[in-house]
Nucleic acid binder design. Sequence first.
DNA 1: CTGAAAGCGCTTACAG
DNA 2: CTGAAAGCGCTTACAG
Lengths: 336, 336
Amino acid sequence: MNDVAARAGVGLKTVSRVVNGEPGVAPAMVERVRAAIDELGFRRNDSARLLRQGRTASIGLLIEDLGDPFSSQLGRAIEDVARERGSLVFTGSSGEDPQLERDLALTFCSRRVDGLVVIPSGDDHRYLLPEMDAGVAVVFVDRPAQQIEADAVLTDNAGGARQGVAHLIRHGHRRIGYLGDLPRIHTAAERLRGYREAMAEAGLPLDEAWIAMGPTDPATVIAEVHRLTSSGGVEPPVTALFSGNNRITLAVLRALAALKQPPALVGFDDLELADLLTPGLSVIAQDPIALGRAAAELLFQRLDGDTAPHRRIEFPTRLVPRGSGERRPSPPPATS
Amino acid sequence: MNDVAARAGVGLKTVSRVVNGEPGVAPAMVERVRAAIDELGFRRNDSARLLRQGRTASIGLLIEDLGDPFSSQLGRAIEDVARERGSLVFTGSSGEDPQLERDLALTFCSRRVDGLVVIPSGDDHRYLLPEMDAGVAVVFVDRPAQQIEADAVLTDNAGGARQGVAHLIRHGHRRIGYLGDLPRIHTAAERLRGYREAMAEAGLPLDEAWIAMGPTDPATVIAEVHRLTSSGGVEPPVTALFSGNNRITLAVLRALAALKQPPALVGFDDLELADLLTPGLSVIAQDPIALGRAAAELLFQRLDGDTAPHRRIEFPTRLVPRGSGERRPSPPPATS
DNA sequence: CTGAAAGCGCTTACAG
DNA sequence: CTGAAAGCGCTTACAG
C-alpha cells in the first residue's frame, strides 16, 4: 500500500479509501490511485486489515473426520452460512482423539478465530473456558460439551432410537439386539437409553447379553452379530437388531449377507444406497445439514452480540421404513 | 504481550523469547514471565506473529462440494498432510460454479494463504496468474488447470473408462451405452474418450445415439437409461451401460431397479455399499486419498522452494468386478 | 477532500 | 543475558 501511495503520489490513507471504496475522494485522485494499483498488481492484505480491526472473519470447524459423510455434509452447511456472513472456515479432523481435538481447538484459538463449531470427541472441555472468556464464541454440534456450559445443537438421539426399536416391536419382535458405540460417547449412551426405554414401554424383558457396546471395527461388529443371531451365542437368538450408527450398520449388513434367515434391522443414520439394497434398509435418519445450519446460525448470532443463556436445540429424527425393519420374526431355530 | 512485559517488569523481547521457548533467558526471568502469563491468561496471537513473519501457515482448499464423499475424502488427506507441516486449511465449496470458484480463490489469496489446492470448476484460470507470480503455490487436483500452466494431480480418466468398457466387451457386449457429465468438464471428456478408444480397439461400431452427455440430475439420467435400454428408444437397445461418475451411477441404479432384464453396468467411482447390492456393483475405482496426499505434498514441496517445471502426476484406476459388470448380454427383446 | 501519526500484536535486527 | 527501536500491512482517530 505504501508503494501504491508513493507511485500515485498520494497519502497512505487515500489509497486505503480507494481500496475500500470509501466516499469523499476526488475523482481525479481515485483515477491516479487506481492506475497505480493496476501497474503494481496490488491486492489488499486482508490478514493485516483484520489484525487491525481486531477480528479475523474466520471460524474453526472441528469435526471427527472430514472424510465421513455425516461430518462433511454438516461442514458444507456451515461453510454456506459462513460465506453468507463473510467468514472463512478452517477445518480440522480430530479423529475421535480428545488430545488432538484440544490441540486443534487451541491452535484455531491462537489464530484468533472469531468462533468455533465443534463436534466433540473429548469428555472434558474445560480447556475452552479461558478462550470463551476471552470472547471466542463456541457452539457444540451432534454432542454436547462436557464439564462446561455451552450452546449445543443436537439430534434427539434417545427419541430416535426409541422410535426405531418401537418400530421393531410393532412388527412382532420381542428379543432385540443392540449394537452401539462406546458408551463414553454421548450419542451412543443416549441411543442405548432410547432402546431401553422402548423395551420398557412395551413391557418387554431385556437381557443385558443382547447389548454390545464396543469397538466398532467391522471384525468386532461381525463377531457380535454372530453371537446375537446364531445358535451357540445368546439363547434363544434375537430376531431383530438395532445398530447405533452408520459405521456399525455397514458391518452389520455385511454380516447379515451371509445368513439364510437374517434378523430384522433398523439402523441409526441413513446411507446413500439404503433404498437399493434387498431388502431396503430401514433407518432412523438425522439431518446433518439442518444441524450444521442451525449451529452456524447460532454461532453468528452470538458473534452479533447475543448474550442470552446457553441454548440447547434438538432436532427430531425421521423413521424411514424400507423393508429390513419390517421383517417379521422367524421362530428361533431351536423351536423349528 | 505488552501487558505481560509490564506485569513481569521485563522487556517485550524477553516475553517473546519465553513464549517461543528461545534459549538464553535467565531461569529467574523465565519464571517471572511464566507467572505473569498465567495470571493474565495470555496466549500468543499467531495471526500477528505470522503477519510479521510474512507467511500465514495456512492453505486454501477449493473443492466442488465438501458434502460429496470424493471431495471430502480428498480434503481429509490434504488436512492430514497440512497438519504434519504445521499448516491450517481453509475449505471452500465452489458448487461447480466458475464464478464462485474465482471469488473463493481470490478471497483466500487476499488472506495471503501460502498455497492453494483446487479442484477446478471453471475453464479459464488466468485469473490466478497474478497470484502465482506473487508467490502463491497452486496445485490442481482431479482436473487440470485451463489456459495456464500449473501442477496437476490427476486420475487416469481415459484409461479407467477404457478399462471398464473393455471389461464389458470381454463379457460379450457389443452395444454399450455411455452416460456422462457435461463434456466441458475435463474428467467427463476424458472418460468419454476412453469409451471411444475401447470400442475402437475392439473393432466395434459405435452409434452416437448410445452416448448421453448431459445434466446429471436423477430425472434426466433415468430418462436416458430408458431411452437406451427399452424398446421405443434406441433400436436395438444396448445390453450394457457405462456410467461416468458416482452421481450418475446412483441414478442409473435406481432406473435399473425397475427393469426385469437390466443391462450390465460398470460405474466410474466406487460407492460405499456397492458390494452389498444384488448383484454387486462393478466399478472403476479411483483413490481420492492418494490424490489428496500427492497434491498436498507437491504443494508443500513448492512452498519449500522447489522450482522445477510444472509436474503432472497421474494415478491409475482399479477395476473392481462385483457382478453387475459381468452380466452377459441378453438377446434384444425384438429377436427373442 | 486529504494525510501524518499512532497502533493492532507480534518479530527482526541491533546494541548493550 | 536483556531490551529499545523499527517494521509486517493495514486502519483508527485526528487535524487540517
